[in-house]
Design a protein around this nucleic acid. Structure first.
Length: 786
DNA sequence: AAAAAAG
């Protein structure tokens, strides 16, 4: 594949500086007026006062609504009840919000952050009108821009609010209120809508139905086939045929589901699996059993052997490629290597052989030295990045060279800038070289860079960093993720965007709708790349990558980058540079780890006890339901807490995270949606109410604290029967911790906790199969449904 | 189990 090996030097990108200087710096909003890049944006800001007036009017209308407006709005409500109900779950949050509402005014302080949404600013102008009314509602606003559909629901809330005013008096009681929630259950009765939501979820199966209907789409496709052009595109996009193929396959698959010959095959093999099961129970118990695993580790030696073998292979594959002075990466796995582990197998894959940069090498090096332009450097400084972190110093030059890059830096080490800044710079270089650098935004110009992230929150967060960098040189970014109406995303694309940042689902959706064209994407970044290779993510990511320009540059980043990304590397990367930072082991970490062995029935109370403190606390739960449950429990304790998980609508997700960021709430209870990438300043305690299953998850969750060299604490709660498994996990994570027996009421931060065991003291016991089964059953009895 | 699409 032709690789972009254009010299990083001479980047006429600077040609853009002037244009940027005109309206640029403050003209980010220039988007609003694609026709008048700079001035309009200025205008927008000027307009702000106007919206301010507008809001007041809204307020009045709002008050009026409270007074007499109900009837007027009810029409909508009745119509939208079903839809709104879906949001109602959020109401439980409203409860929190009400407590917070005073704080909401605070939110505004945070709203500046929204300035990131600049892409959406057109919408903002809208929001502004709305905001006025919201002045009261400030809590909800974040979502509202999207929520317009939901707003009717708000009117709903208002209806409820009337009663709630009554409730407010009771609120202190809330803890007890939950008993009162019986009335709420009353509300719930009203919440037929929720049941609706559930229905919606039920409808999701219907989606499969839709898919059945998709044959109709295939029909559409037939229509499209009529579209000569498209058929053309199909030819061009070698992939599309594949898709149609896929669909064809899907149909069979359905049928197959019964048939799945392959599966039946597997079944034949499954007997073997049962065998595995015998072993697996062992695992549960077998944590002791991991003896064999440790065995595997012994095997790793052979693996490394394999590496030696592989190395030659690669050499054969790529005879001509030996970089001057660069150690050849050992990363390439053999294609035939079936490193397919079942999700339950938490295995440490081979580490990447990488060029390790020493932290000391960075001393005295500036971003400019690394090849970044003046505008980018200045924005980085504004973002608080005065001088490059090691991972940044390592990867920025490689990206600017046009190489494919694999980057690994521990959590909180500055990976976003490590790929974001050079991506922007490189786009400018390429653009200048292509001679298209006109300095003006071209309507509908196609994106040339794509950044993929596993969660919407992370995509948003990345945009917050990349957008100002891009803006500084006159480039535009937009977020493409689900959970919000697609209209403004599509609008942004139509106006022309340079960098798309988003999550796989919506991106694929828009591609299928032909509203997003990645054919000119020459730089693709995959953040949390190893996670993006997990089951469920890999295939969408592959499909998306295939949509990008051939030979485009690919950048894969993660704190736990390992052989799990081999599939992507093999298909999409050419001679990647692999970089990591030397000495980034747990011993050098600023995070203190503790493991509490507790009684499960005391878990919620212990979490509350731990979280009842001043600093920001992030609590991880394995399931959405338990996250909700814990949040409520904390509230009962009088601890302000909000939840973050996939059962919440996006507006609430965004808002709840925002509440922790802003400090209005000190405790966030989240599923693993918040495990990776999310940066919130000054989280000094992470509580794992449920222990993770994978060591990588442990590392990422822990990494929400102790960022950028700050100190942090991580407490993991485990039941007694999980000690063995936890020990193994910690071993893989290379974390050395003593377990402590903790009961409700213990002063866990003092010295009163009983020491239980050291990781090192756990021994591996050899057993017969019968013994293993017996032990597994015993373990199962101990922990129901563990 | 969780995450990721729905004008």
């Amino acid at each position: 594949m032709p690789k972009n090996k254009k010299p990083a030097g001479g980047r006429p990108a600077k040609n853009f500086d002037p244009s940027y200087a005109k309206g640029g710096s403050k003209g980010g909003p220039a988007r609003a007026g694609s026709s008048k890049p700079g001035s309009r944006s200025e205008g927008h800001r000027g307009y702000r006062p106007e919206p301010a007036d507008g809001p007041r009017k809204v307020r009045w209308s709002a008050d009026e609504r409270v007074a007499a407006g109900r009837t007027a709005h009810r029409g909508d409500r009745d119509g939208r009840d079903a839809g709104q109900s879906s949001e109602r779950p959020a109401r439980s949050y409203d409860r929190n919000d009400r407590n917070d509402r005073p704080a909401r005014s605070y939110d505004r302080n945070d709203r500046p952050a929204r300035s990131y949404d600049r892409n959406d600013r057109p919408a903002r102008s809208y929001d502004r009108d709305d905001r006025a009314p919201r002045a009261g509602d400030r809590n909800d606003r974040p979502a509202r821009s999207y929520d317009r559909n939901d707003r009717p629901a708000r009117s709903h809330d208002r209806d409820d609010r009337a009663p709630r005013t009554g409730d407010r008096n009771e609120r202190p009681a809330r803890s007890s209120d939950r008993d009162d929630r019986a009335p709420r259950t009353g509300d719930r009765n009203e919440r037929p809508a929720r049941s609706y939501d559930r229905n919606d979820r039920n409808e999701r199966p219907a989606r499969s139905y839709d898919r059945t209907e998709r044959p109709a789409r295939s029909f559409d496709r037939n229509d499209r086939t009529e579209r000569p052009v498209r058929s053309y595109d199909r030819n061009d996009r070698t992939e599309r045929p594949a898709r149609s193929f896929d669909r064809d396959d899907r149909a069979p698959r359905r049928a197959d589901q019964g048939d799945r010959p392959a599966r039946s095959y597997d079944r034949t093999e499954r007997p073997a699996r049962t065998f595995d099961r015998n072993e697996r129970p062992a695992r549960s118990f077998d944590r002791s059993d991991r003896a064999p695993r440790s065995y595997d580790r012994d095997d790793r030696a052979p693996r490394s052997y394999d590496r030696d073998d592989r190395a030659p292979r690669r050499d054969v594959d790529r005879p001509g490629f030996k970089d001057s002075g660069r150690r050849e990466s050992d990363f390439y796995p053999a294609k035939e290597q079936g490193h397919r582990f079942s999700p339950n197998d938490d295995v440490v894959l081979e580490r990447l052989e990488a060029d390790a940069i020493q932290a000391t090498e960075v001393d005295g090096v500036s971003f400019a030295d690394l090849g970044l332009g003046g505008n980018v450097v200045r924005v980085l400084k504004e973002l608080g990045a005065e001088s490059p972190f090691p991972i940044q110093a390592a990867t920025i030059p490689a990206v600017l060279e046009g190489r494919d890059v694999l980057g690994r830096g521990k959590t909180g080490s500055g990976k976003t800038i490590a790929f974001g800044a050079p991506t922007v710079e490189r786009l400018m270089t390429l653009w200048a070289e292509s001679g298209k650098a006109g300095g003006k935004r071209q309507m509908g110009r196609k994106p040339r860079a794509l950044i993929l992230a596993p969660t919407r929150e992370l995509a948003l967060q990345i945009d917050r960093t990349v957008q100002p960098i891009a803006q500084s040189v006159g480039l535009f970014t937009t977020q493409i993720y689900g959970g919000v109406p697609q209209a403004r995303q599509v609008g942004a694309l139509q106006r022309g965007v340079d960098i798309v940042i988003g999550t796989p689902g919506r991106i694929e959706d828009l591609i299928e709708q032909r509203r997003l064209d990645l054919s000119e994407v020459v730089i693709t970044v995959i953040d949390e790349a190893d996670h993006m290779c997990d089951l469920g993510f890999l295939e969408p990511v592959q499909r998306i990558l295939r949509r990008t320009a051939d030979g485009g540059q690919k950048l894969l980043f993660s704190a736990t980058l390992d052989q799990g990304v081999a599939t992507l590397v093999n298909e999409f990367l050419v001679e990647p540079a692999v970089h990591e930072v030397a000495g980034e082991d747990q011993a050098s970490s600023t995070i203190e780890h503790r493991v509490f062995v507790i009684e499960n029935r005391e878990k919620r109370d212990i979490v509350a006890q731990l979280a009842n403190r001043e600093g920001k606390t992030l609590v991880f739960s394995r399931t959405r339901a338990f996250a909700e449950d814990l949040t409520g429990h904390l509230e009962d304790y009088g601890i302000r807490a909000v939840a973050l998980h996939g059962d919440l609508n996006q507006s609430r997700r965004t808002r709840n995270l925002q509440q922790l960021t802003s400090g209005r709430v000190n405790v966030l209870v989240a599923t693993d949606v918040a495990a990776r990438g999310i940066h919130v300043d000054d989280i000094d305690l992470v509580i794992q109410a449920d222990a993770p299953d994978e060591y990588k998850t442990y590392l990422h969750r822990s990494g929400r604290t102790g960022r950028a060299g700050k100190e942090g604490r991580v407490v993991t709660l485990i039941p007694g029967n999980r000690q063995r498994r936890m020990t193994d996990l910690l071993g893989r994570a290379e974390i050395d911790v003593d377990f402590e027996r903790v009961a409700l009421g213990d002063d866990v931060w003092g010295e009163s906790v009983e020491f239980v065991a050291e990781v090192e003291t756990v021994e591996v016991v050899e057993m017969t199969v019968d013994e293993v089964v017996e032990a597994a059953e015993a373990a199962a009895d101990e922990s129901p449904a563990a």
